[in-house]
Design a protein around this nucleic acid. Structure first.
Lengths: 338, 338
DNA sequence: TTCGCCTGTGTAACCGGTTACGCTGTGAAC
DNA sequence: GTTCACAGCGTAACCGGTTACACAGGCGAA
């Protein structure tokens, strides 16, 4: 592979001149520049980004650290990030914490020297730990994580208000006994959604200790919840699952037990994954523009990298929108129904 | 941020010793090593990967260049790649060609000096162009792309045989007039699937010029195909869509026209996206382990990077498996049905 | 005692770019 | 005819690591 020195030699100039010519800095005459460019073409020279970033002290890359890469949720986030990053000529370096705290530290450490900034989504990490791992000199935006005590910019979904709104809607739709399927215990999203549910039940429904079934955001745990519900003879006329994935499993489980949705029992989810509208009946849910979560965070990071100071703008909360569909009897079944 | 020199100074040793201690090279006494490690802790030193990769001439990163980042297909590929990469301590640098040829060249060029190898998926690029863009010194594995004349290792899905098998199955299931909804014209997957369909129709069904409707892999184009089919009064008792996405649209469109699936008409897709089994009736399709596409390619690349020479092994073809479900009357409707 | 080897450590070159600074030669101003 | 500013270009230091090579000291063998 040709280096800049090779190009300089070929063009009969110094490396400094070659560098200036290639990067379009002013002080190079047209003929000199032409000679350099000819050498570049001839030798097929492509600048070594690693070396360049070493002196420039910028890499034009941002690190993205996600808890997992599974499912549409993450692909949407990445797509949103990429959209904005691409516009600014930034690259994306993917890190995956694979659920382990230790891996998280490693993933973050490995980013040093490779990226100009970090986008981190640590749904089940304690703030103190997180601040230990993060490099304070590296611009960082948190995804879906209210930093709280940490003084870091973040973009989050208003899980609390979303859950509150959905619960309210179920009650308004005639449900009296609403059961919640919770997400993983340590997951902040899950906890906030549960809080929203509990508060809405108390404040709007006048119910003190609403039933809550355990879950872990997986489809399987939704199936299990259906079993618990039916076998446990839990009185319920509506179930609000903490995410769509569990709602999908729940509906399958209810169908096996001969329960009809929404006839016997209404079902609602959270996230509005693409699958939601294709179910039959289609799934009522809280629509989160997942890609916007990513793109907003990326825009925030870009502004920080540009040196802008963002005061209150550093905390962005996206409010999910209620989408009433078939499983709450809100609208006719999706058109995919036969 | 502390550098190696800082650590060396703090520990009272030279940079060489510090480097050796940190990297666990043998020739360092225990007390010296301890002193260095103490300095590392104290100064919070994290090696600068950029600088390190400059001398080591390896980056522990592979570049992944995909045509797009939309939908579950790509998220699954990335997940498969990440799974293997992570095991080997490799990082993933994402490049996106955003559908444009020019961007493709830029994406590939930007990788120089940042990665040790490349995973490229160029579904609608001509081989000659591709070889122009690629750096011959950079180990590269092609995804879902039979390099043909190019002498590059690749991992691909046997689209031809998959389509052939599905068409055969439809015919065996009693269909006589099978219509194909094709994918984008320049897309190799789409073309191979169409060939498989045409050949099977001729060889197994004895049909010379089977009907083929245009499509572009989008759900929308499936809906359009349904319209063409019904309004055009095309005689058909089965439709084989070149991918699941279009099959989904097709089913929706047929439902709108009052056609029942599989009663009036059977439907089959290709890919087995997660949504497929959740439809009602569930979608018959060719199962492609998309994540394996990614992980296999990554394993191939790793072996090349390790210096292994792989002869015939450099071309891997994954054969998709037929999954008969509701839309071909093959099995009972999915359990998500009410 | 002397030689040689081996171990632990330091010096400095190097990876491939960028850029501060210094040098040269030209034309304008005096 | 000097002086000066400035444009164009080259030299060399630098980014932050790795590592070839040199070197010092300790030890066993001759």
């Amino acid at each position: 592979m040709a280096t800049l020195r090779d190009v300089a030699r070929e063009a009969g100039v110094s490396v400094a001149t070659a560098s200036r010519a290639i990067n379009g800095l002013g002080n190079v005459t047209a003929p000199t520049k032409a000679a350099v460019m000819a050498a570049v073409k001839k030798l097929n020279f492509v600048p070594h980004s690693g070396a360049r970033s070493l002196t420039r002290r910028k890499t034009d890359t941002v690190g993205v650290i996600l808890p997992d890469l599974f499912g549409e949720f993450f692909s949407e986030i990445i797509r949103g990030i990429d959209l904005v990053a691409h516009e600014s000529g930034m690259h994306l370096l993917l890190g995956n914490m694979h659920g382990s705290t230790h891996e998280t530290a490693a993933a973050i450490a490995a980013m040093r020297g490779r990226v100009d900034g970090l986008l981190v989504m640590p749904p089940d990490l304690k703030p103190e730990l997180l601040s230990d791992y993060l490099d304070p000199t590296l611009p960082t935006v948190l995804l879906n994580y209210d930093a709280g005590s940490l003084d870091l910019p973040f973009v989050a979904v208003d899980n609390y208000r979303g859950a509150y709104a959905m619960t309210e809607a179920l009650l308004a739709g005639g449900a009296r006994q609403v059961v919640h399927i919770a997400g993983p215990k340590h997951n902040r999203d899950a906890r906030d959604r549960q809080r929203g549910f509990v508060d809405a039940m108390a404040q709007v429904g006048g119910v003190r200790n609403p039933a809550i079934l355990p879950g872990d955001f997986s489809e399987e745990s939704g199936v299990k919840a259906a079993r618990l519900l039916v076998e446990g003879q839990l009185p319920a006329d509506a179930v609000f699952a903490a995410n769509d994935q569990m709602a999908v499993g729940l509906i399958a489980g209810l169908a096996e037990s001969g329960k009809s949705v929404p006839g016997d029992i209404m079902v609602a989810g959270f996230d509005d994954i693409p699958l939601a509208r294709h179910l039959n009946p289609s799934l009522s849910t809280m629509q989160v523009h997942i890609d916007r979560l990513g793109s907003t965070a990326m825009m925030l990071l870009l502004r920080i990298l540009r040196g802008e100071t963002l005061g209150a703008a550093s905390a962005t909360i996206l409010t999910p929108a209620l989408v009433a569909r078939g499983t709450t009897g809100g609208v006719a079944a999706a058109r995919t129904s036969a």
